[in-house]
Write a protein that binds this DNA or RNA. Sequence first.
RNA 1: GUCCUGUUAGCUCAGCCGGUAGAGCAUUUCCCUUUUAAGGAAGUGGCCGUUGGUUCGAAUCCAACACAGGACACCA
Length: 501
Amino acid sequence: MFSNRYIEQRVEKGELLRESGRNPYENRVARDSFTADFLDKFNYLKDSEERRDESQSCRLIGRIKFLRLMGKASFMRIEDSKGSLQIYLSRNNLGDWFNTLKKVVEVGDIVEVEGYPFVTKTDELSLHVSDFKVVTKAVAPLPEKFHGLQDKELRYRQRYLDMIMNPDVKEVFQKRSQIVSAIRHFLESREFLEVETPMLHPIAGGANARPFITHHNALGVDRFLRIAPELYLKRLLVGGFDAVFEINRNFRNEGMDHTHNPEFTMLEFYWAYHRYEDLMELTEEMFGYLFETLKLEQKLQFDGKEIDFSAPFQKIAYLESLVSIGGVSEEIIHSRDKIIEFLDSNNIDFNRDASLGYLQAELFDNFVEDKLINPTFITEFPIDISPLARRSDRDHNIADRFELFIAGTEVSNGFSELNDPIDQYERFKKQIDAKNSGDDEAHEMDEDYIRALMYGMPPAAGQGIGIDRLVMLLTNQISIRDVLLFPAMKPLNNEIEIIGE
RNA sequence: GUCCUGUUAGCUCAGCCGGUAGAGCAUUUCCCUUUUAAGGAAGUGGCCGUUGGUUCGAAUCCAACACAGGACACCA
């Protein structure tokens, strides 16, 4: 672990520090300024005659990013959470300690410095150091100072190093935090109650997906990591909460790519005595609030496309979108045989035994979805691809459901909830038939959920929003890994060996 | 799951017409009191992703595997 020669050298320098009576892992620190504030506060010195103010004294802490040692003087650049600052050290001020620190201080170390502001010959506002202390000795060398850390794999596996070398990445995660916070405030202001429901489920329900399986030793039973919180949140409506939401992780045991991570963050919210139309309105308001809070332009660039987030968002019925956006002929979309013929003529793979609704979904996925760039609500979903949604009163073959598409991907899914326990029971049974005929993502029967519905769930609407994808959209990141601090990675060789032992 | 590209020093990258392993930064020693990727002088540093094959000889050619990035397929 410490056998690399660069690391050995640096460990030795830490020892030298210790021998000189200084702790390389100092615990007592005092900071009264941040770099950015220092630069703001003393910027006027650039225009002053003196170009310095020795009556001032500031104490800062930062990590050394650049180091220029000369015979009797030295420049360093230290970086803290708010920015970076050049500091100047000379032997005049520091005496013997200057000679020692030249030997033991390196790029990467965290140091505490005290001094006064001055402007250098090349017009850079800097700190003239009178006191210098190593706070934390870094024994691993940092990557090269000019090119930095480029290797995407290392950046994801060692995100801490990525953050040190590429401070810009921190902005995405700060924005992510602001987005989640704004959503929370928005929902709370509408009297939604934030709740936390189980992650370990006896039955993995609420979505169609393969779950992770784990084992509970004390109970001697297997548990599933949740694929969705939906069924628990709706039990809370039965119990009497009128509006609940949860922002947390879901886990799906499926492939990974630039839009999928095995654990991802979902917002789900459920609203009693409201319909899916109300959700669409609420969604527009939520986006409006988000853009206002984050001070975003209404038109955002994403993946080279311009997206206009101005409300109201466009609304198009599912079947209508197949024709008007997908360009599929009206005569085709209502007939299983004609859709099959059409899909075949376009060389698309699909399940030939699928129902009409599933075949229409094939048309949608292949011809419509990626054309939906500006925020668009697709409504009136086929009932057979909506096992948890309420049937429309107008047409029993469609669901009171919508999905919101932005930039060619689904960002949100919402619907009026099915609260007829007998209808729900029958739909679970259909899913079980699908499961038995090979669909390993089909829904399981959840009898306790049916029991809850039997006590009466108020009419309600519920919605989910994928937070990672939303953050991608709002920060113009094309890969989900760039909005996850620690994206899932395959194990390296030596990790496999450790697990195998 | 499929296809394409990549993997060489701590980092960023050359080398790929097979013939002793290269550069810049970093690091080590020395010089240097206003530098801006500081400068000058001299060094150290490599299982060329792993395993096998072809060859007198492989970083280089071939195969398999591992990991990564990208594209496609499925999902959110």
